[in-house]
């Protein structure tokens, strides 16, 4: 069965004790164990090596492993904390923790800023925003002329770039987000609140271990 040679639990690379992960994230131990069920599903969808490869991430997001998407790439890169091209379980839990409804808003704001700072310069530049708008348009049915895109950028920067240097720094980003809370909508996943009921199989295992069934 599978690739395990013995009945002893062989842990994949990057697996960390759920109690440690729980102590360092927004999740409880049960929630971390439930996330492991989800992680196993995603990380075995293409290559069964206990790690999430970009193809597997795309497959889980879009149900299509070949779909290129600038934003999915950025999310993958940010989840890949060790920057080694794959997401291990501890990276998965630590990164998803930011998306928990109880995670601090500050963490969500910083994560979104890093996501949109495509070139990682510490600023969201106008050119980056344009690149992202064009990428969004190309994945949707919306068609906007270059003139309209430029006017959207003008309007956005008049509002966001309060220091008038043509780019948005973290402080400016925070003020913009506080004025437009809807920009943080993607940064909270209500699913994470009831993850133990979505992926309950670990509870079943725990009950068996307790001998209480």
């Amino acid at each position: 069965m599978g690739c395990f040679h013995s009945k002893k639990n062989k842990v994949p690379p990057g697996y960390e004790d759920p109690s440690i992960l729980a102590s360092e994230t927004t999740f409880s131990v049960s929630e971390v164990e439930a996330l492991y069920e989800l992680f196993k599903k995603i990380s075995s969808s293409v290559v069964n090596d206990g790690l999430i490869h970009k193809e597997e991430f795309q497959l889980a997001l879009f149900k299509n492993r070949k779909r290129e998407n600038l934003f999915a790439d950025r999310v993958f890169d940010l989840f890949d904390l060790k920057q080694n091209g794959v997401i291990d379980f501890s990276e998965f839990v630590r990164s998803l923790s930011v998306f928990h409804p109880n995670a601090p808003l500050e963490d969500k704001i910083v994560f979104a800023f890093r996501l949109y700072d495509l070139r990682q310069t510490g600023y969201i530049e106008r050119e980056e925003v344009k690149q992202m708008v064009v990428a969004l348009l190309s994945e949707s049915d919306m068609k906007l002329s270059d003139e309209v895109i430029e006017s959207i950028l003008d309007k956005t920067f008049v509002e966001a770039d309060t220091k008038h240097d043509g780019r948005i720094d973290l402080d400016e980003w925070k003020s913009l987000v506080l004025r437009h809370p809807s920009l943080m909508k993607n940064m909270t996943l209500p699913y994470l609140k009831d993850i133990t009921t979505t992926f309950p199989s670990f509870i079943f295992h725990s009950e068996l271990d307790d001998g209480s069934a």
């Binding site: 989800l38 599903k41 995603i42 889980a60 997001l61 879009f62 149900k63 998407n69 600038l70 934003f71 999915a72 790439d73 950025r74 999310v75 998803l96 998306f99 996501l115 949109y116 925003v129 992202m132 708008v133 990428a135 969004l136 348009l137 994945e139 949707s140 906007l144 309209v148 959207i152 950028l153 309007k155 956005t156 509002e159 966001a160 913009l176 437009h180 809807s182 920009l183 909508k185 993607n186 996943l189 209500p190 699913y191 993850i195 979505t198």
Partner: peptide
């Protein structure tokens, strides 16, 4: 055509690549 009243980030946030809830619909 109607004027677009969204700011750039509101538009960007519509991307399916940013909708991680689909990770849970496996």
């Amino acid at each position: 055509s109607k004027p677009v009243t969204m700011n750039a980030f509101e538009l960007i946030s519509l991307s399916s690549g940013l909708n991680l809830s689909s990770l849970f619909e496996t």
